[in-house]
């Protein structure tokens, strides 16, 4: 009966080599990803002259200063104004994309209509067209509608570009909701919009968050269409502002202000991702059936 007398081996105390390996690898990969960001953060605090020097060592050699941020703030309108432009475009794109893709995804998932398969494939196939190639026609279209140089025009373009992927995502999300839940809700008296908002949307929330986040980030970071479409400096979004800021007062390239701008652009994305990552990852349907 020695088995009952000796204490069991405490599992947590033993070193597991595969776990050590895992943590070392993960740390290395994380460092690899974080290094450029750290570089940007440090560079944004350099002196104006310092920022023109070779980037090694990465930290400011002439002492920390917030001068770059001041120069950024003094360019054109305030930085808050341009952030506002970007926020309008990004949030507008995210909201519009969510509304359209939820409705379309629900329709494709749950309703039968003629040519459904063909329409869906057509929508998906637009992913394969590089959007740069349709920029000119898009520009002409918007000009005809009087929407060039307007932020709302940009929202429409971004939403259009975002939709194929988003509709696909939302259709999959709705497909994953068991039919029986919908039928139970029908028996409970749900129909039409109430069915969608009270029963279905809570179940596809992770899909909505994913779609919204992608739309927001893509719109927030997009450069080319914004550059082509916006001519008025008042209307610039942050990526376009960055190119404008680059050519500072004396004709030299102002890397410091650009780094500061990149910081300003990065922070909202980081915050958003941290807030949403939980529902982004969690699958809500767990436990619904079986």
């Amino acid at each position: 009966m020695t088995g009952t007398l000796t204490a069991p081996t405490p599992r947590g105390g033993r070193i597991r080599y595969h776990r050590v390996l895992f943590h070392v690898t993960a740390t290395l990969v994380a460092l690899l990803f974080l290094a450029p960001i750290a570089w940007v953060v440090l560079a944004s605090f350099r002196q104006a002259t310092d920022s023109l020097k070779p980037p090694l060592p990465p930290w400011p050699t002439d002492g920390f200063t917030a001068d770059s941020y001041v120069r950024l703030q003094e360019f054109g309108q305030s930085i808050l104004h341009y952030t506002g432009n970007s926020a309008f475009v990004a949030i507008g794109t995210a909201v519009l994309t969510i509304i359209v893709s939820v409705l379309a995804g629900y329709g494709f998932s749950r309703y039968r209509f003629p040519l459904k398969g063909l329409v869906f494939v057509l929508i998906l196939s637009t992913i394969m067209i590089p959007f740069q190639s349709i920029l000119t026609p898009l520009f002409l279209l918007l000009a005809k509608m009087g929407l060039q140089n307007k932020l709302i025009g940009l929202v429409l373009i971004y939403t259009t570009l975002q939709l194929p992927f988003s509709v696909f995502m939302m259709r999959n999300a709705f497909d994953a909701v068991p039919k029986e839940i919908e039928e139970a809700a029908r028996i409970d008296g749900m129909k039409g919009i109430a069915m969608l908002t009270k029963v279905m949307i809570p179940l596809v929330k992770p899909g909505i968050v994913t779609v919204g986040l992608f739309a927001f980030l893509n719109a927030w970071n997009e450069f080319l269409a914004a550059l082509v479409l916006l001519t008025d400096q008042d209307k610039f979004t942050l990526p376009v502002l960055m190119t404008a800021v680059r050519y500072g007062r004396f004709g030299s390239v102002d890397w410091g202000a650009v780094q500061a701008g990149v910081m300003v652009m990065m922070i909202p994305c980081l915050i958003l991702f941290l807030i949403l990552q939980r529902s982004y990852i969690r699958g809500l349907t767990a436990g619904a059936v079986k």
Partner: peptide, 17 residues
């Protein structure tokens, strides 16, 4: 279905998660 005076229990339970 909601106006027929019926209630249904499904094999897969179909609860609202």
């Amino acid at each position: 279905p909601s106006d027929r005076g019926i209630a249904m229990v499904f094999q897969t339970y179909a609860l609202y998660p």
